[in-house]
Write a protein that binds this DNA or RNA. Structure first.
Lengths: 188, 188
DNA sequence: TTTTAGGTACACAGACCTGTGTAATTGCGC
DNA sequence: GCGCAATTACACAGGTCTGTGTACCTAAAA
């Protein structure tokens, strides 16, 4: 008989499945029974690893908190590549917007811990932009970083609704103009 | 005794309340009982006006489908005023993002009718921008209108998460640069 | 071999949800 | 006063959800 524990890390398996279902179908739309059934474990096992659905939601979002890995490309290219990467992700049928924005939209403002993670994520990306802009000696790196963050979330929201990956290219073009206007040399 | 029907239009009263609760707390978070109780009517009355919760959700979104009224201000000023208006709305404690984006995030892609309304709304605003840009003889009105629409949804998403009305000003500044770059004379 | 950690099966409590059925009541136009 | 349409109170069916309780099982370590 097959071992009852195919993978050693049951917690990670639960999180993987919760991520897929929460993200694609919505946090409120998915019950813990559904997650357990999808993995083929009992609901009891799930509750042995996470004390509550709320804890699972929090862990799901924390697992989504991934920043771009360091790159040796020039800063301006890294910034524009962000939007190329988004366009690729938009083209996948499994893209359904920003999990943090969606979670705040679904769970409401009263859910403090979820909002806290979402704010941290948004700010960390803004700071990632700001860091690159500082390397480019941009005058108002602070403001421009915010504008780039707005462009990112804007094309994500537009694609979520319209299912139109070209929204990423529109945002990229806007970013290019903003960079040029700030005195940054940009290729295309 | 006070009349049982303070306002003549019960349907509108239901919609008003559904709007408030759906928008502020989420569509899935609010049950029809809650809506009826908030108005002080019986659930039966609600179901006499709307055949199902789905119908109520659709009506809620259709009621939110409001475009800016015509203005005699110059086109460029109208475009920038959009972001000023957003900043004012962000400052209200009752602002909780774009109801269409939130509904798509909550109800998922399988809900065709909701997505259809959301797409129509996004496109109508994009066309509103495009119309103004055409009046300004902008070369690529199509593309620039899309970029402005991205800025709008971007600052809305950012404010939803961060509760920071200044996101609207960041978007406004980006819009100003994009307009200037397209050859439009903009005051401030 | 015995202990032990982790998993399973399954029932269940208690809450909430959408939607319906029904009979009584109310206010308004006629 | 009378009829009518809207509204009410209230129970209920049937479903879902989160979370727990319990007894059993299995595999690997001691």
């Amino acid at each position: 008989m097959a071992s009852l524990q195919k993978k050693p890390d049951m917690k990670e398996r639960i999180l993987e499945t919760a991520d897929k279902l929460f993200y694609l179908q919505g946090i409120r739309a998915i019950g813990v029974d559904t997650i357990a059934a999808e993995i083929g474990i009992s609901k009891r096992t799930l509750y042995n690893h996470f004390p509550s659905k709320d804890a699972l939601i929090t862990a799901y979002l924390e697992r989504r908190f991934v920043l771009p890995r360091p790159s040796d490309k020039p800063p301006a290219a890294q910034i524009l590549a962000t939007f190329d990467s988004l366009e690729r992700r938009f083209s996948s049928k499994d893209f359904r917007g920003c999990p943090f924005v969606n979670a705040v939209a679904e769970l409401g403002a009263e859910d403090k811990s979820v909002r806290k993670i979402a704010v941290a994520f948004k700010e960390s990306r803004r700071l990632w932009f700001r860091n690159l802009l500082n390397q480019l000696d941009v005058a108002d790196a602070e403001g421009l970083a915010t504008q780039l963050a707005v462009l990112v979330d804007g094309c994500i929201a537009q694609d979520l609704v319209r299912n139109d990956p070209s929204m990423a290219r529109a945002a990229r073009e806007a970013a290019r103009v903003l960079l040029k206007n700030a005195g940054v040399k940009v290729s295309a």
